[in-house]
Computed example of a mutant assay.
Amino acid sequence: MFITDVFDSMTASRAWYDKVHLADGTGRNLYLSQTLGGNSVSAVVADQTSRPEAGNCITVTLKTQSTFYQPAPFYTAQNFLIFRHENLDADSGLFLVTTMRNAMGKFSWGYGVSMARLEKTRIMVPVVTDASGEDVVDWDGMSAYGHALRVRAERAIAPVIGAPS
């Protein structure tokens, strides 16, 4: 399916700040930058002049094609796209991040991510046929599969970190 068929919205971040212009103080808001790791989180910052972006979304950086599920509210650096759907949750989000990262492999510095290019990008998602005979995203199946994968991963690392299984 095209990415635009999977998500309700795909927009640029409206709560972006250059890091040097962030308001001082302690806070509880995540600040995302163009990093490839750590869920793109580069700092925890105070409230800024605008409200942070709501969590429960997927973010993609235009420069590095970093793709992450964001559970909590956040501010961003420039050039972040935000993907939302009313049925998105942490489990389906982790599944979608994986399939979106595979699709991002075709982008690079010379052929970077853009809104127009993403609108033409297909990703692999589970589908079901609805009552009218149309293929639609299987959000329940995606969440169940994402949850099963997360449980399996948590059980696999529990002996390593000493957590109860």
Rank of each mutant, 00 (worst) to 15 (best):
G141I: 09
T59Y: 04
W139Y: 13
I82P: 06
T11N: 11
D47P: 13
G55L: 03
V44M: 10
V151M: 14
V6Y: 00
S92Y: 06
N102R: 11
V20P: 01
V151H: 11
V45K: 10
T76E: 05
Y69Q: 02
R150P: 07
F68Y: 06
I82M: 02
V20A: 12
Q78S: 14
A156H: 06
E154T: 03
Q78H: 07
N29Y: 15
A148N: 11
Y17G: 10
H85F: 06
A156T: 02
R51K: 05
E86G: 11
H21A: 11
Y145P: 03
D140A: 15
T11I: 12
T49W: 04
F95W: 15
S92Q: 06
P164G: 14
I3C: 12
T129P: 08
C57G: 02
D135E: 15
F95M: 13
Y31T: 13
S114T: 09
M10W: 12
T4L: 08
F107M: 02
L30P: 01
K19Q: 14
S9C: 15
S92M: 06
G37A: 15
I82T: 01
L32F: 08
E53H: 01
D91Q: 13
S13H: 05
E53M: 01
V160F: 12
T76H: 07
S92R: 03
S165R: 14
F68P: 00
M10A: 13
V113A: 04
